[in-house]
């Protein structure tokens, strides 16, 4: 489904994107993600395609707001049956509750359900509408880590089985990584859309890079070209970055590398030639444990953040103050287009 929507209020927004299967819309808070969903549901005035001139009652767009918006005095079954009619409606509602694995809680009221269960009731209710488009606003923000995983799995499975165009808004990279298509909202428009791998590894702008976890972003000057890429000079260090469209020598560019893709050179294992070119000596400044990874801040010619899986750290036994060598493998060095980088 192709969406092209323009909003004037509460903020100026022009969103063009493709919704195919589970499509995730990523954006900073305040970027207008929720407003776009509300406009698509017909609850905010907007111009565009599809259904912009239809009242919300006639759009058949399933909308799950963050608080799920269940009717508190109705049981789970009655909530799901809201868009349905007659006695056959209750049977259909029962089948939808079964689909979200909540048949046994059909007679409970919302306040007798957990957050994850409420969300599934709301999902079943939106599905009972047999929507043409499903909209989910931050479905994982109120859930704990374990519930989050099952919730995302369930949403993904049902959307796939129903072949339902679904737009899910989030700022959670974990959810974004599970999508079929990832769109990023920035400065009032969709700046990039593609498979999540592509967006995560090749963000189009600096802002998107930060949003998807590029902690290491630097500015530098193009110092020279070579087959397949350019040399960039940053704070006295020359780094090789691959690119198909090399910028002019002397122009300012931004480049970056994800913390997960900075490699630590082990002194006992010499590196092969392509890796050998982007190397620098750094000192370990800080070691922070974050779940199963260590975030290591190092400083030398550049200040870098390096993410280290626990099993690697268990072998290397790095300590604050150690002098080590890191390599920025050219394949992982990402050059941001200079026009976007200024934003």
């Amino acid at each position: 489904m192709e969406i092209d929507y323009r909003l004037e209020r509460p903020l100026k927004l022009h969103a063009r994107l493709q919704v195919q299967g589970l499509t995730v819309l990523l954006g900073e808070s305040g970027s207008g993600k929720t407003s776009l969903l509300r406009a698509l549901a017909g609850l905010l005035r907007a111009r565009g395609r599809p259904f912009a001139d239809l009242a919300p009652e006639r759009r058949r767009v399933g909308y799950l707001p963050q608080g799920y918006a269940l009717v508190p005095h109705m049981t789970a079954l009655e909530n799901v049956a809201l868009p349905l009619h007659g006695p056959s409606g209750r049977r259909t509602a029962g089948r939808w509750l079964e689909r979200v694995e909540l048949k046994h809680l059909a007679e409970r009221r919302p306040h007798e359900l957990s957050g994850g269960e409420r969300q599934r009731v709301a999902l079943a209710r939106a599905l009972a509408l047999e929507p043409r488009l499903l909209l989910l606003d931050e479905p994982t923000s109120a859930l704990d880590a374990a519930t989050r995983e099952t919730a995302v799995e369930l949403i993904e499975r049902i959307v796939r089985e129903e072949g339902l165009p679904t737009l899910l808004v989030t700022h959670d990279p974990y959810v974004a990584a599970r999508s079929r298509s990832l769109a990023v909202l920035e400065a009032g428009r969709v700046r990039q859309q593609g498979p999540p791998d592509e967006v995560f590894s090749r963000p189009a702008t600096l802002g998107i890079a930060r949003l998807v976890g590029f902690a290491n972003v630097f500015s530098g000057k193009v110092a020279g070209r070579e087959e397949g890429g350019v040399w960039i000079e940053t704070q006295g260090l020359r780094v090789f970055a691959p690119t198909a469209a090399p910028p002019k020598a002397g122009s300012r560019v931004h480049w970056g590398i994800r913390p997960e893709e900075v490699m630590i050179v082990r002194p006992d294992r010499p590196l092969s030639a392509p890796l050998a070119r982007n190397r620098l000596e750094v000192r370990v400044r800080r070691l922070i444990k974050k779940g199963l990874v260590y975030v290591v801040r190092v400083a030398g010619a550049l200040e870098l953040e390096v993410a280290l899986p626990r099993h690697v750290q268990d072998r290397l036994r790095l300590a604050e103050g150690d002098l080590i060598e890191v390599a920025l493998k050219p394949a992982y060095v990402h050059l941001f287009s200079s026009g976007d980088a200024s934003s």
């Binding site: 549901a41 017909g42 609850l43 767009v61 809201l82 868009p83 209710r125």
Partner: peptide, 13 residues
Amino acid sequence: EPEVLEVTRTLGL
């Protein structure tokens, strides 16, 4: 909750 009323609109009520 106004949000509940809004969502029931999208459900066709």
